[in-house]
Design a protein around this nucleic acid. Structure first.
Length: 107
DNA sequence: TAAGTGACGTCCG
DNA sequence: GCGGACGCCACTT
């Protein structure tokens, strides 16, 4: 499922779990990613907390690595947070939402 | 077998 | 917006 997340977009653990058919399996997703051998082709860095924060403690090597990879994909991390309204991956509406952007003043 | 522990999420104050 | 309490579930002690 995580491999489906396109570059430049992110998804929350809960979202991935749900899409994978595991309603309350957010923690399972975290475990799965953690047990994934490094150097694999799974874009683990695109999975973050629903709050828009990176799950690792700020300042940790892992936090730095993840934020680095995200920024490399042009995902903005402001004040330790990622704007989910802007970068959250939406499987179906993806193409629609990722266009320029004018339409979200409805918020 | 029971208790502790997370790469989490939601609710509440 | 933040921290605490709980819920969650697959391990590990």
């Amino acid at each position: 499922m995580v491999r489906e997340i396109p570059e430049g977009r992110v998804a929350s653990y809960g979202q991935v779990a749900e899409l994978a058919g595991i309603p309350r399996g957010a923690r399972q997703v975290g475990r799965a990613l953690g047990s994934q051998p490094d150097g694999d082709d799974v874009p683990w860095h695109r999975v973050i907390q629903a709050s828009g924060r990176i799950a690792f403690p700020e300042g940790s090597a892992q936090y730095d690595e993840q934020s680095r990879l995200l920024r490399m994909e042009n995902v903005a991390i402001v004040a330790g947070r990622i704007d989910m309204r802007q970068f959250r991956w939406q499987p179906d509406l993806d193409e629609l939402l990722w266009k320029p952007t004018p339409a979200w003043d409805e918020e």
